[in-house]
Every structure is written in C-alpha cells, then in structure tokens.
C-alpha cells in the first residue's frame, strides 16, 4: 500500500525538478535525492511491503488471514492486554511527564540543568542494561525486597518484576524522557507573563492554570501523547524482559509466531495491522512531529 504510492510519488518528485530548477547545478541535487530514495525503497520499503504482501498471500491469497485474526480469541486477549497496558503506561507517563516538565520550567537555572541531565541520561543507556537493573532491584531476592523486609514492611519477598507491574514500571521509565522533553519545550515557549496577567484579570491561581497555562501547553502534551502511544503499542523488549512471559503484548506475540510457532500468517497480518495503526497515527498527527523531536533548551 505504502510502497506503490511512494514509487508514484517518487516519480512525480523526480519530474518536478525541471520546473523549479533555478540554477543549472541542481541536477546534482536531483541525483542525490533519487539515489537515496532508491536505496530507501530497496532496503526498507520493499522488505516492509513484503510483510504486507505476505499477509494477503500466505497460506492462501485473499483476506482470509484478517478474518481469522478478528475471530481469534488469543489475539483478542493479547490486543486487549496491549491496549490496557499501553493506556495505563501512556496515562502515567503523561501525568508524571507533565508535572516534571512544569517543575523544569519553574526550576532555577542550575537545578534545571541538573534535572535535564537526569532526564537525558537514560536515553543514552541501553534499555537492556536498564531492564537488567530493574530486575536486579525488584526481583524477590533483589535490593528493594531486602530493604522492605529489613524495615519490617514485608514478611516475605514479593516479586515486583515478571508481572504487569514490572512491565508498566519499565515502560514508564523508558517513555518518560520522550514525554518530558516535548512538553518542556512547549512550556518554555509560553510567555511567562500570561499566567500573571490572567490573575490580574481576576483569575485565581487555579483558574490561571486551567484556562491559560494548560491550553497553551497542550501542543506539547499532544506531541508527547503521540510519541508515547506509538512507542507503547509496539513495545517488545521491556514486556519480554520484565513481563516474564505472563504479560504478553502484541510485539512479543508476533515474535512467538515467527520464532516458535512459525505462523507467518498471523505474524504478517498482525504486523500489517500494527503498521497500519502506526501509519494512521503518524498521518493524523504528523504536524506534531516537529515538536516531538524538539530539543531541550537550557
């Protein structure tokens, strides 16, 4: 679906240069675009397109795979679990991210720099290592459990990972920087005198926040929601590591179809649907991309 339209668009693009070339040297630029786009098509869009194509071709041509997916109880359970965990993690991430971004805006320059470093740091450390740390901290023999027992808050070790709690915790930890940064970028753009002005016009602090600050920060919140929603739907590693096989989400379910049950029909069909949902989100919210990739200003 994406592939043929991209080729068509690529052709249209290649043709467009003759009308807009103001300088003769532009043909070099055309070559660069066409070359790089061809590589992208061959090395990226083609393999993705093959997944989509397979979902309609294997084992028999047609849309039979989609019918059976919609009637498959296991898939229902997995999708339900995915949606539930995703909305929970996105909601938690946005709430905590918004508050943290607000604290960043309010903080003094030194505190803000330190906090921003703390927000950026996890982005650079492999999620494998982070999940490893969570397991070490939260497993029954881990540090958190021994502290809780020593303080007398627990009688017996409790497993805080290899269940939904661990998955939610790991996902929220992973996604928080991606929520904080765009929200903070938007909040930093708000004219800081406006909330004060609202109060001089009669608004209480709470009204000034709800009627002025919140709506003005909404684009950042939307960008964060967009980014974290896309991430949480396709999360693979964290549920696989911290879920301990009990909390199976769509991505892990797909991987099982590829590596264990070898059900390519289910794998490709679910992948296509996931691609479709992601594509739809991007299409609908592409205007938020710029803010979603905004950099923090210190």
């Amino acid at each position: 679906m994406i592939l043929p339209s991209a080729i068509a668009l690529g052709r249209e693009f290649a043709g467009a240069r003759f009308q807009i070339a103001p300088v003769r040297g532009l043909s070099v630029q055309d070559g660069l675009v066409i070359g790089s786009v061809l590589v992208l098509i061959a090395c990226y869009l083609l393999p993705l397109g093959a997944v989509v194509a397979l979902s309609f071709l294997v084992p028999v041509p047609g849309i039979g795979n989609y019918w059976s997916i919609f009637q498959n109880a296991t898939v229902h359970a997995v999708v339900g679990k995915t949606l539930w965990i995703s909305s929970l993690t996105v909601g938690l991430t946005l709430l905590l991210g918004y508050i943290t971004a607000y604290a960043l805006v309010q903080a003094g320059p030194v505190a803000r720099k330190l906090m921003l470093a703390g927000v950026l740091l996890p982005l650079w450390i492999s999620v494998l290592v982070r999940n490893y740390a969570w397991i070490a901290l939260l497993s029954p023999g881990g540090i958190v459990n021994s502290i809780l027992i020593r303080w007398g808050w627990l009688d017996q070790p409790v497993s805080l990972v290899r269940n939904s709690f661990g998955v939610v915790l790991g996902m929220v930890h992973y996604m928080l920087p991606y929520a904080i940064l765009p929200i903070y970028a938007q909040m930093a753009r708000i004219d800081s005198t406006l909330p004060h002005l609202a109060r001089s016009l009669g608004a209480s602090p709470r009204q000034a926040f709800i009627r002025v600050f919140l709506p003005l920060s909404r684009p950042g919140l939307a960008a964060a929601a967009f980014l974290t929603s896309i991430m949480s739907l396709g999360f693979y590693l964290t549920p696989a590591m911290l879920g301990g096989g009990k909390t199976v989400m769509v991505a892990e379910f797909i991987s099982i179809q590829v590596t264990e049950t070898l059900r390519w029909d289910i794998a490709t069909t679910l992948s296509t649907l996931l691609l479709l949902v992601t594509g739809a989100l991007v299409w609908r919210f592409s205007h938020l991309l710029e803010l979603a990739t905004a950099k923090p200003k210190t």
């Binding site: 396709g234 999360f235 691609l275």
Partner: peptide, 22 residues
C-alpha cells in the same frame, strides 16, 4: 519523503524484525 526517511525511527522494531528476518 522526509517522513518516510524517519520511518525506521517510527515503525515498531518488531515489524522491522519480521520484515528483515524474511
């Protein structure tokens, strides 16, 4: 085209895994 170039960043890793495995 720019959005397509950003595709590998946006599309979930598991889809890449399925696609490139194949």
């Amino acid at each position: 085209l720019q959005i397509l170039m950003l595709g590998p960043l946006i599309v979930p890793g598991i889809i890449h895994a399925v696609a490139y495995h194949r």
